[in-house]
């Protein structure tokens, strides 16, 4: 038993070095792929995804890796466009949710009542199924792309806010915070100089780990028919359109776009967890 523990410790030490290197490699790899998706998505001209009835309903081939749909549109191009769109919406949703979470967690350090309000708000948002909230907001805004973006931006903060709040609560009891208070520093000063620097790693990781959720929810809500018009190549719309052609055997219409989305979400998840491991050794190693 003892030998094993020591062995594991030694192995752990050796591995630790490798884990760091591997993690950095993973981060570089993941970012490269993401950038490739964005750039290729941005540079696709609309001609490529135009209607071309001569090549409709083609199975995947060397000319069209993902096949073509019933209007002869190239599915690879549409998928890339859709992924770029998802990414854009994801950035917006993750950024605004991170900001909301940060503000609320700092606000919760203000007083007991403030903390109570924040926890109550978190509980409130977590008490309705997320999809239902998204539908409600989308309806309130009057539908359209705007509704999807606002809905996604306003609903992803609770879990991160809960995490940050716990962190702030812990920091509040630290001695140096007490010293600053005695020295007559304002709460704002303490929040900026003591809390914020501690929260930045959490914010970064939280920001990236929000992407998978936001992107999946974006695909889900557009799949359900909220928001985007049918010409927009969003993954959710591509998939919901493909449902009409499933029974005729056009399997590639659904298979590849969904798989691409899965891979992109997976990369974000990997990226987030790698960075977490890199900057937060206590938490990341258990992962």
């Amino acid at each position: 038993m003892n030998d094993r523990v020591i062995n594991e410790k030694q192995r752990g030490k050796k591995l630790h070095f490798n884990v760091r290197q591997r993690t950095v490699a993973m981060i570089i790899f993941a970012s490269t792929i993401l950038f490739a998706i964005i750039i290729s998505g941005l540079f696709i001209d609309t001609e490529k995804i135009g209607i071309n009835l001569e090549i409709k309903n083609q199975a995947p081939s060397l000319a069209h890796f993902f096949g073509t749909d019933w209007l002869g549109r190239d599915m690879l191009m549409r998928t890339l466009k859709g992924l770029t769109l998802s990414l854009g919406v994801g950035i917006l949703a993750a950024l605004s949710s991170t900001i909301i979470a940060l503000i609320l967690s700092l606000f919760s350090s203000w007083s007991k009542i403030a903390d109570y309000i924040v926890t109550w708000l978190i509980d409130l948002f977590l008490s309705v199924p997320h999809i239902v909230t998204l539908i409600l907001i989308s309806f309130a805004v009057g539908g359209g792309f705007k509704g999807v973006v606002i809905g996604l931006a306003l609903t992803h903060w609770p879990s991160l806010a809960r995490l940050l709040r716990a962190e702030v609560l812990q920091l509040k009891t630290a001695e140096y915070v007490g010293v600053s208070e005695r020295l007559g520093k304002s709460r704002l000063w303490i929040a900026r100089h003591h809390f914020l620097p501690h929260l930045i790693p959490q914010l970064l990781v939280g920001f990236i780990l929000l992407f998978p959720h936001a992107i999946l929810h974006e695909a889900a809500i557009t799949f359900l028919g909220f928001g985007l018009s049918t010409e927009t190549p969003a993954i959710g719309i591509i998939l919901s359109e493909s449902m009409r052609y499933l029974s005729t055997g056009l399997w590639w219409l659904a298979f590849f776009p969904g798989l691409s989305l899965l891979i992109m979400v997976g990369i974000f998840d990997l990226l987030g967890r790698s960075i977490q491991r890199l900057i937060d050794p206590f938490h990341g190693q258990r992962g």
């Binding site: 998978p212 999946l216 799949f223 989305l261 899965l262 979400v265 997976g266 998840d269």
Partner: peptide, 22 residues
């Protein structure tokens, strides 16, 4: 971890294609 990144409705579509259509 793969499951966590999988869109639930896409999985449904795959199952539908495999079991019902195919």
């Amino acid at each position: 971890f793969t499951l966590a990144s999988t869109p639930a409705f896409w999985l449904g579509l795959l199952l539908l294609m495999f079991f019902s259509v195919w």
